[in-house]
Simulated assay, not measured.
Amino acid sequence: MFKKILAAVTAAALCVSLAACGATSSSSTEEQAPASSAATVEEAASSTAETAAETLRVAGLKGPTTMGLVNLMSGNPEGYTFTMYGAADEISPLLVKGELDAAAVPANLAATLYQKTGGEIEVACINTLGVLYILENGTSVNSIADLKGQTILTTGKGTTPEYVLRYVLTQNGLDPDSDVTIEYFSEATEALSQLQAGAGTIAMLPQPFVTTALSQMSDLRVALDMNEEWEKVAGSKLVTGVLAVRKDAVEKNPEAFAEFLQGYSDSVEAANTDLEGTAALCEQYGIVGKAALAQKALPECNIVFETGDEMKADLQTYFQVLYDADPASVGGALPADDFYYAG
């Protein structure tokens, strides 16, 4: 049964790689001090076990979903350990097995994990809103209607970028299969290289690739913000990332988890106000390659700390769109009310 769960979750994780940028190696911010020479072996073992039981083990993906965590990570706070990963499919089995307690992951992966674990996973907050933008090397596109007859270079075939694009086009009266030509590439870097090579003039890309593209192509501009276009037709915010958490980790010490969330909220506020300091930390922890890129991208990455009813409303609308496009994208069913952490 466990192997089936891991197989299903791994498949889902491959569909949510939008939020992961860069390398696939992992590293931990935790530093362990050696046991005192005066301590006995039994005392050291007991202390280690107690620390493990009290420590909240948090994972993050390299990319926008973890940018809001870096200021909390940098303080090396007592009671938490942070580990960075390059891909969602590295995190999923660790959450399923209980080797991680919480992780900043794409929203639909959290929903999939909830289904595959029988409700053992919940979502504590939205940490990143939409990061998708329509770019144009020209000036002809100023509305969704202007995309009719155009070719759009993008990534994410069969995943959330495709579902978002098709939904927005359809709600604006365009048929994604006949009114536009959508060319999909396996990675955002490939779509960007095609745009640079002149294979097309319009692309839908995520941050921070948008910032990279704008810095490399002088005539390129942001034509449409998909967050704004989503809100016009869906009446709610477009979501990218969330903090998924094991319910048993919360139930073990709800006060400590509430304290962690407060620290997370403060960290997000710092990410939106101290761009230079946060960008430096993003480079330090390998979340974004260079601080200069991170500093330019941060204001456009829509880093938030959204909880409670607002979180639930935005996620329910988002999940409904994904479910209508492909039920497997959210684990085969819409999450029940117990998926949403109430505090």
Results as ranks from 00 to 15, higher is better:
residue 212 T to S: 15
residue 98 G to T: 08
residue 67 M to R: 00
residue 288 V to G: 01
residue 260 F to R: 05
residue 185 F to I: 00
residue 260 F to N: 00
residue 131 V to H: 11
residue 205 L to S: 10
residue 320 Q to L: 01
residue 292 A to D: 15
residue 190 E to C: 02
residue 322 L to Q: 02
residue 41 V to M: 11
residue 206 P to H: 06
residue 53 A to H: 03
residue 152 I to E: 01
residue 205 L to C: 06
residue 196 Q to W: 03
residue 289 G to N: 11
residue 243 L to E: 07
residue 342 A to L: 08
residue 299 P to M: 06
residue 149 G to H: 07
residue 297 A to T: 01
residue 153 L to C: 07
residue 116 K to T: 13
residue 257 F to K: 08
residue 181 T to A: 07
residue 247 K to R: 15
residue 146 D to E: 10
residue 179 D to A: 11
residue 262 Q to L: 15
residue 214 L to N: 09
residue 4 K to G: 14
residue 41 V to G: 14
residue 202 I to A: 00
residue 180 V to Y: 05
residue 130 G to P: 01
residue 272 N to G: 14
residue 343 G to N: 14
residue 158 G to R: 07
residue 247 K to L: 09
residue 286 G to F: 12
residue 57 R to G: 00
residue 95 L to C: 01
residue 268 V to D: 10
residue 68 G to N: 01
residue 3 K to I: 09
residue 333 A to M: 07
residue 18 L to K: 12
residue 328 A to R: 02
residue 323 Y to M: 02
residue 95 L to N: 06
residue 99 E to F: 00
residue 146 D to Q: 05
residue 238 L to M: 12
residue 110 A to I: 07
residue 313 A to L: 03
residue 244 A to S: 15
residue 160 T to N: 01
residue 9 V to D: 14
residue 162 E to Q: 15
residue 338 D to L: 08
residue 56 L to A: 00
residue 73 M to Q: 02
residue 139 T to G: 09
residue 166 R to F: 04
residue 117 T to G: 07
residue 152 I to C: 03
residue 251 E to D: 15
residue 208 P to M: 06
residue 294 A to H: 07
residue 55 T to G: 00
residue 162 E to M: 02
residue 203 A to L: 02
residue 23 A to I: 14
residue 12 A to G: 13
residue 269 E to I: 11
residue 192 L to G: 05
residue 164 V to R: 05
residue 101 D to Y: 08
residue 89 D to T: 01
residue 318 Y to G: 00
residue 306 E to H: 04
residue 174 L to H: 11
residue 248 D to T: 14
residue 130 G to A: 06
residue 253 N to C: 04
residue 340 Y to K: 09
residue 189 T to G: 09
residue 313 A to K: 15
residue 17 S to P: 06
residue 303 I to W: 03
residue 307 T to I: 10
residue 193 S to T: 13
residue 88 A to V: 07
residue 117 T to E: 06
residue 290 K to F: 12
residue 177 D to T: 00
residue 331 G to H: 11
residue 282 C to W: 04
residue 195 L to Q: 09
residue 225 D to L: 09
residue 279 A to E: 05
residue 22 G to M: 11
residue 191 A to N: 10
residue 283 E to Q: 15
residue 193 S to G: 02
residue 4 K to T: 14
residue 142 N to Q: 12
residue 148 K to W: 13
residue 202 I to C: 06
residue 335 P to D: 04
residue 267 S to I: 09
residue 78 E to I: 01
residue 8 A to R: 15
residue 205 L to M: 10
residue 156 G to F: 03
residue 171 Q to I: 01
residue 295 Q to K: 14
residue 142 N to V: 06
residue 101 D to F: 06
residue 205 L to F: 09
residue 322 L to H: 09
residue 159 T to M: 01
residue 111 A to W: 04
residue 154 T to E: 06
residue 83 T to D: 09
residue 289 G to A: 15
residue 142 N to P: 00
residue 138 G to E: 02
residue 138 G to S: 08
residue 196 Q to M: 10
residue 236 S to N: 14
residue 22 G to R: 13
residue 324 D to A: 07
residue 31 E to W: 04
residue 293 L to D: 10
residue 259 E to N: 13
residue 113 L to K: 03
residue 38 A to N: 08
residue 335 P to N: 06
residue 231 E to D: 11
residue 109 L to T: 05
residue 1 M to E: 14
residue 79 G to H: 05
residue 205 L to H: 08
residue 64 P to T: 09
